[in-house]
Nucleic acid binder design. Structure first.
Lengths: 154, 154
DNA sequence: CATGCTAGTGCAAGTGATTGCAATAGCGAA
DNA sequence: TTCGCTATTGCAATCACTTGCACTAGCATG
């Protein structure tokens, strides 16, 4: 049972990017509400890729009164703070990537449904190719490319 | 707004890929219905990129009784025949590309909203990069990459 | 031309995501 | 501690898209 312990007050050596989020919000004139705390708690223990729907479900586990609109709006705010990045999954559904340590795109296998991250070097190659083509500045974090993975492409 | 339309020049009045579509459907055990005719009529005079919503609206101009589900289902069929290709636009919405002369991806500028096609050579570079990375076989036709175009990226 | 098989249609319900609006509640200041 | 401004919430309505199901109608065959 993952029990959240007091974080902001105590100072641990390896600080999480989530620490001080409340203060950072307030510093921008925004507010720290129970609903936002719930979502951040969920995100804190769920790094990687998540769909919006999944996040809503997990929030509701903790707080039955969670409403979708609030979650979506809070995710927008957190995206402004760089704590999550959203993209569109296979079916065009919202998909969030938590704590993007570095900007990267995603690969989605149409056959088995798995998702991979595009490695930085490969991503850079794509960015360069498109810059050379039309002078386009790609936002790699928003890219999801479909296809078939090594295993499924036979 | 720069809208890429490859075969805008020199269109031959009688050599349309849409000709004989009825027969091709029948040859596959499928049927040629008034509803399908309406959609094909709309598509025939609307090459380039269109959203599903826009197509539904245009169909309804011609036939008030048009229902969304039928349009979506017919688009699926036409996609099987290679007459349209669907992808997901900026907001994750369905976007159709009519008569894809060659498989290509799309670029979308987050700032001005314009859409470009990725040139074949550039697309090939992307495909190669991802094949080398994870052995991934990219379905280029389904790719939409967001970013900022030359003009907007200042 | 009439018939039967079944692809296709329309409806209605359902899911995911967004938005307008009135009521609520952070939180900085008094 | 109380007050007031306004960010945020929750609801309900709406949009985009999908799906299950009963009925309709293409069209191949006789």
């Amino acid at each position: 049972m993952p029990q959240a312990s007091p974080n902001a007050a105590g100072r641990l050596p390896d600080a999480s990017p989530w620490d001080g989020i409340a203060e950072r919000l307030r510093a921008s004139g925004l507010r720290w509400t129970p609903q936002r705390r719930t979502l951040v708690d969920v995100l804190r223990e769920h790094e990687g890729h998540v769909t919006a729907t999944e996040l809503i479900a997990r929030c509701r586990e903790r707080d039955q009164t969670t409403t979708p609109s609030t979650v979506y709006r809070t995710l927008d705010v957190l995206e402004d703070f760089g704590l999550v990045k959203h993209g569109h999954g296979p079916g065009g559904r919202e998909e969030y990537h938590v704590l993007p340590d570095q900007v990267h795109g995603h690969l989605h296998c149409m056959a088995c449904g798995a998702t991979w991250e595009i490695r930085p070097e490969t991503g850079a190659a794509i960015v360069d190719a498109l810059a050379a083509d039309l002078g386009f500045a790609v936002d790699l974090s928003h890219v999801t490319i479909s296809g078939r993975c090594r295993v499924c492409r036979d």
